[in-house]
């Protein structure tokens, strides 16, 4: 009799884990709380660093969903029970699903920029988040965004909700830097005469081709970088935004007017992850993301036999890294189901 795995979460990690397990001959049930698959990927227009269409990645993941995967959309889990090495997942509508293994792939949430009160998100008209900008790009609505904008100066703020103990997030979200540079280039393409500034503390262009993208942003696109964390924003009488930073490379405070301020919001653990982790007694780190049994050697296993982790519920990760992690998780699950090893 074939073994069954339940994957919770139908974003990038969940889709790829499900697809891989399915290809390995394991019966897969995929549960997603929303009406469609794809998670945050569906909110992206183009991906860093090569700016390919996010749709291409989605199409690949979707292909993996073909046969044999039982899909439960709009499904919220009310309880998880365990007996004799078998898991029973109970949905809110009363349906019961059972399996030999569970994979949590419940992802992350975006930081709520309103918590940085001094940046005026939700208060000033021309302060938006990087996610909103991406949505504009995706829906080809940038024109609305820049309507009536005169001098076209754009400020991009790094580390919003990241590296910030005041909002409870000491960690680096690590993908905001490259997102900011990508979006800066994309704005430049739309508005060749715009002045575009990134306000950063240090640019963490850690992955392959990221540093080159930063170079290209400076050399080819004339994006300007000011080292200094945004201290506060205010609204001018003409609805432009006045930003204040310390230009730490000159050692002087600096103010400038921007027409549009974009906040690069970071990753935060999702409440749904916390809820499910509570049901299963899983370990949370100091950063509130979930901890695997061993970060080096067992990055997808938990101390709870039969329960596995995949993707950004363990912390900020790119789509490329999430896909690799999902494949590793699938292999770990398969090994457990075949050999009984975690």
């Amino acid at each position: 009799m074939s073994k069954t795995a339940i994957i919770i979460g139908g974003g990038v990690a969940g889709m790829e884990t499900a697809g891989q397990l399915n290809r390995l001959g394991i019966e897969v049930v995929l549960i997603e709380k929303q009406a469609s698959l794809g998670g945050h990927l569906k909110n992206w227009d183009r991906l860093f660093p090569d700016r390919r269409e996010s749709q291409e990645v989605f199409d690949y993941l979707e292909k993996g969903m073909n046969d044999g995967i039982s899909l439960y959309l709009n499904a919220t889990i009310s309880d998880i029970r365990e007996a004799g090495g078998k898991f029973t997942v109970i949905l809110e509508d009363g349906r019961e699903l059972s399996s030999d293994a569970l994979v949590l792939a419940t992802g992350y949430d975006l930081f709520d920029a309103r918590k940085k009160e001094e940046y005026g998100f939700g208060i000033y008209d021309n302060v938006i988040t990087s996610a909103e900008l991406e949505e504009f790009f995706r829906n080809n609505k940038q024109k609305n965004l820049f309507e009536g904008v005169q001098s076209k100066r754009v400020g991009i703020v790094h580390c919003v909700g990241s590296r910030d103990e005041k909002v409870g997030n000491l960690y680096c979200s690590k993908l905001c830097c490259v997102t900011g540079v990508k979006q800066a280039i994309e704005i430049r393409e739309l508005m060749p005469d715009a002045e575009i500034f990134c306000f950063y503390m240090d640019l963490r262009m850690f992955d392959r081709h990221f540093e080159e993208m930063y170079y290209e942003a400076q050399e080819k696109w004339g994006i300007r970088f000011i080292r200094g964390r945004l201290s506060e924003a205010a609204e001018n009488p003409d609805h432009t935004i006045l930003v204040k930073v310390e230009d730490t490379l000159t050692g002087l405070p600096l103010k400038m007017k921007v027409d549009l301020l974009i906040l690069l919001v970071g990753f935060v653990p999702s409440p749904e992850t916390k809820r499910l982790a509570g049901m299963l007694g899983l370990k949370e780190g100091d950063d509130r993301f979930l901890c695997p049994s061993d970060e080096h050697l067992l990055p997808n296993s938990t101390d709870h036999p039969g329960v596995f982790l995949a993707g950004t519920l363990k912390g900020p990760a790119s789509i490329a890294a999430t896909i690799v992690d999902a494949r590793a998780a699938a292999l770990q699950v398969a090994e457990y189901l075949v050999n009984g090893e975690r």
């Binding site: 309103r114 009160e117 005026g120 998100f121 939700g122 208060i123 000033y124 008209d125 609204e235 609805h239």
Partner: peptide, 10 residues
């Protein structure tokens, strides 16, 4: 200026 945003903070 969106006053609702301020009201939420208040």
């Amino acid at each position: 200026m969106k006053i609702e945003g301020k009201k939420q903070i208040w």
